[in-house]
Amino acid sequence: MRGVVLATLLSLMAASPAAADPATLTEGQVLRGRFVQERHLQGFSQPLRSEGDFVLVPGKGLIWRAEIPFPVTTVVTPAGLVQSVAGQETTRLPAARLPFLSRLYAMMGGAMAGDWSALDGEFTVARRQDGKTLRVTLSPRRNGDPAAAALKEIDAQVGRFVEAVDLVKPGGDFDHLVFSGQALTTGAPTDAEAAALAAAGK
């Protein structure tokens, strides 16, 4: 499930060939931005809202730092997923235990180069141009895969970058993510970012 979310996000952020003026992310570039995540859970009257920033380094991984209301950093690399709170590791999931995650990593390469056909194998991809915005809807293709079955649908709005994503789960829970302040720079990640990715990639 985490793999689906992750890979989909990454590949959507990467590029969308049909968009008016899509940013194409390549190695040697870094994408930074801020996010607001609203998690709508059954039985909760209010969504769980969190915000923070993220750093995406193609080929290296993703650093996702929630600051409000609870500071927690998630680093995702080809080696897996690591969460830490105040420098203390709280969760570590090696990719070897999640074949689905590693598989989506492979597909990411294709998606970055604008090749959506690899994703086609796992998802039904529907695209709809809505003014300047491209709306992409992904539905898991197979019912048998427990990982894919954990998601019902992914909806994304893509402009120059991915602007918003909805992750809908079968039980009715859904996450709504809004991205802002995205900036694409050329060059290496900062030392701190590189260190965080390296520590998670161990």
């Binding site: 998690r39 859970l41 927690v72 829970d173």
Partner: peptide, 13 residues
Amino acid sequence: LSQVFGFAGMADG
């Protein structure tokens, strides 16, 4: 808290 607020959380209502 980190599972609920972290990236790709597994929290289920």
